[in-house]
Amino acid sequence: MVQRGSKVRILRPESYWFQDVGTVASVDQSGIKYPVIVRFEKVNYSGINTNNFAEDELVEVEA
């Protein structure tokens, strides 16, 4: 279970941040499909630095 402030590695192959490390900004408990919002240092092609992920697409590298 990841929690706010954890450092996580992204396992979603189609993601711009695949294999990159980001910080968990928040975790939604309402039961949505992609409840974990992760914030990154670098921006993607659209200038965005956050994205939603499912918990099984993340691996915690640092608490």
Rank of each mutant, 00 (worst) to 15 (best):
Y16H: 05
T50P: 00
S15P: 01
M1L: 11
E55F: 15
E14K: 08
Q3K: 14
G31N: 15
N44G: 05
R39M: 13
T23M: 08
R39I: 14
F53D: 00
G47S: 04
P13Y: 09
V2E: 00
S46N: 14
D56K: 06
A25R: 06
E62V: 11
Y34K: 08
R4P: 14
E55Q: 13
Y16V: 04
N49L: 05
I48Q: 15
A25L: 15
N51Q: 15
E57Y: 04
V24Y: 03
A63R: 12
N51L: 07
G5A: 03
I10T: 01
R39F: 12
V59Q: 14
E60G: 07
L11T: 06
N52L: 05
G47K: 04
Y34P: 02
N52T: 07
R4W: 05
V43Q: 10
A63I: 11
V38T: 00
V2L: 15
G5R: 06
V61L: 09
F18D: 00
E57G: 03
V59S: 08
N51E: 15
E57C: 06
N44M: 07
E60A: 12
I48T: 10
S15M: 04
K42D: 07
Y16C: 07
R12E: 01
R4T: 13
V36F: 13
V59M: 13
Y45R: 14
Q29G: 10
V43L: 10
P13F: 11
S15T: 03
R9M: 09
V59K: 09
G31D: 12
Y45E: 15
G47V: 02
W17Q: 00
I48G: 08
D28P: 04
V27Q: 02
G31S: 08
F18A: 03
E57M: 03
Q3R: 14
N51M: 15
S6P: 03
I48A: 13
F18L: 02
K33F: 06
V2F: 15
V38Q: 00
E62H: 12
V24G: 01
L11E: 05
V21F: 07
Q29F: 12
G31W: 08
I10H: 02
V27T: 05
V36M: 04
N52Q: 09
S30G: 10
E14F: 08
G47W: 05
L11D: 01
Q29C: 13
N49H: 07
V27A: 03
K7M: 10
Y34L: 07
Y16E: 07
N52P: 07
I32V: 13
N51D: 15
T23E: 10
Y16G: 00
Y16F: 15
E41M: 08
M1F: 13
T50V: 13
Q19A: 07
R39W: 13
P35K: 11
N52I: 05
S26I: 07
S6N: 06
V2A: 05
A25I: 15
T50S: 10
S30E: 05
K7Q: 08
V21D: 01
I48C: 15
I10N: 02
F53M: 01
G5H: 03
F18P: 00
V61M: 07
P35E: 07
D28H: 06
G5N: 04
L58N: 03
W17I: 03
S6K: 08
L58R: 02
V36C: 05
N44Q: 06
A63D: 13
V43T: 12
M1A: 12
K33A: 12
L58E: 01
